[in-house]
Design a protein around this nucleic acid. Structure first.
Lengths: 329, 329
DNA sequence: TTGTAAGCGTTATCAT
DNA sequence: ATGATAACGCTTACAA
């Protein structure tokens, strides 16, 4: 197999522990003679030695690794969020193990199992299978395992959500100011949790006195296309739409256009998430921005707080959203 | 720390080895009495036992893990490719450790180091820092370490490239058939390796007798926007463009439009990669498709072939490309 | 300054 | 059918 500390010890005629000492120069307490040090270092280098993560993890009980569970990478929201979280974790000296479930609940459990077996020190969940009653939820709760559920709001574990209300208020106000009297909301169908976006939408419409309609939509782009197509043909369709994600907004717009509508002339469309890709779409997407980079940083900070102090109480972090006006509405 | 096999042994009054036997029911050779089995299983379940990956890896010398190095996830090409590779690996019983370098050569080496320390059994490289002369290149070569370099063509290690020629030929022929007499190619600037796309483009233009121009472009979307903007204002610009990636094509189109051009009327644009997202762009992107899903599967198969037989000679796999006609050209 | 030995959680090889 | 023990690669007391 790979080169070990024992190989180095043998080759340089010293004990394993001496090699270990040299290789972890940190041990300032005990010193090593310059001669041995140089010798060992040379041998280690010549042999292409690389410490074994598993051996170290086993004996230290630490992995400096976080787990991240997501359904897939299709949507730019997810891939940008994953990237943001990886970068943030890296900056704090942690690695991230990404696990994709392909939206299969069974696989989701396998992913969690695998992360736990690898002894990740904390878990970030972008999917929502973990909820009260669920075996893992109870486990995390009981063990005070550092986990953060994104876009959920249970109180036994830490969560990070976005206050959509402000964003939706701004969005509806913006549409009203542009003369729209009715707004449609394309929501994600079959959400197992409370649909905060939906609620925020309804409240915003009520507050601003504009008529509200909602349309259900699946999670694939094809669903989005079909919904756009259906809305375009509907008898009395609204003149503006808010879609639950930038990704889905592109699908919906595709469907709308297939029916000959122009954006934003015939239909104003506002997305949600604030993905980078929304900015180069045509027309550039007006969107309810959740601040992906900031969110990624905040969630990593949050989980690391728990990692560093397992007795810390769970936190429910709520981040603001704001309307980012571009050209699609 | 976590529950161990020893805890279970103690709690159920049997030896560690018995517990291990029960937990790895595979050991058909030696049997365990039904009573002990049930007892141990119950205790393990009650205690929420989870085997330690590190301990197993240490003891077996296997991790069933592949490493994957990429610059970032910004471009849909990368995120779709990473997803495809993860899914393919998963299907073959391997996990993928993703490591992002943020295009920083120094970090790239750290990523490799980290993957090697974790004893991944093979590495997939989407970036191109590993090349002859490079310390890691020599290491991989010498150790016959299972590694696949994507879009590079050295012969000491396995590589996977795409035969762009067919795709470019089709693309140029398509443009010519639509009446374009000159075609521009937006290439990635400062490629440290031979630029195959560039070469294929030049050949295709020569073959089809159309005038060729090339434009250099950085890797960020902003670079793409600026190049589009510059091309739009150029005195005698071509009427059609091929861009080195779908992602960058969206940036270029953005710039073109800022100058008032319509796509494809004022400028036909062909992207490259065949990303899913290109299909919902507006207008849907005509693109030179590399077949991301198939590529992901092929590359995982390739690296696993090497994993299973370290003495296997490196392979240079070349996959076909084809033109996917949509609406942008 | 350096060596010896125990232990981290598993599995595998012997015994019993 | 089950138990004891060594080994995997490393770190860390403790001795020398």
């Amino acid at each position: 197999m790979a080169v070990t500390i024992t190989d180095i010890a043998r080759r340089s005629g010293v004990a394993k522990s001496t090699v270990s000492r040299v290789l972890n120069r940190k041990t300032t307490a005990v010193a090593v003679s310059d001669t041995t040090r140089r010798l060992v270092e040379k041998v280690a280098h010549d042999l292409n030695y690389r410490p074994s993560f598993s051996a170290r993890a086993l004996n230290s009980g630490k992995t400096r690794t976080l787990g991240l569970v997501c359904g897939d990478f299709q949507s730019p929201y997810v891939s940008e969020m994953v990237a943001a979280e990886m970068v943030a974790a890296e900056a704090r000296g942690y690695h991230v193990l990404v696990s994709v479930t392909q939206w299969n609940p069974e696989k989701e459990l396998q992913c969690l199992e695998m992360l736990l077996e690898r002894r990740v020190e904390g878990i970030l969940m972008l999917t929502d299978v973990v909820r009260p009653g669920n075996e893992y939820y109870e486990y995390f709760k009981k063990e005070r395992f550092p986990v953060v559920l994104q876009e959920c709001d249970y109180s036994d574990v830490s969560t990070l959500t976005h206050d959509c209300q402000a964003g939706f208020d701004e969005a509806v106000a913006h549409l009203k100011a542009r003369g729209h009297r009715g707004v449609g909301f394309v929501r994600q169908e079959a959400k197992p949790t409370r649909d905060y976006k939906m609620i925020a939408f309804a409240q915003a419409c009520q507050k601003h006195q504009v008529a509200a309609v909602t349309y259900d939509c699946g999670v694939t782009l094809d669903c989005g296309k079909e919904v756009g197509w259906r809305i375009a043909r509907a008898a009395n369709r609204p003149s503006a739409l808010i879609v639950y994600s930038d990704y889905m907004a592109t699908g919906v717009i595709y469907g709308l256009r297939k029916q000959g509508l122009s954006i934003p002339e015939d239909m104003a469309v506002i997305g949600m998430d604030g993905t980078q890709l929304g900015g180069v779409y045509y027309p550039p997407l007006t969107t309810i921005d959740v601040g992906i980079t900031a969110t990624g940083g905040a969630i990593v900070d949050l989980v690391l707080r728990q990692v560093e102090d397992r007795n810390r109480a769970p936190e429910q972090l709520v981040l603001p959203t704001r309307l980012l006006v571009r050209e699609s509405a």
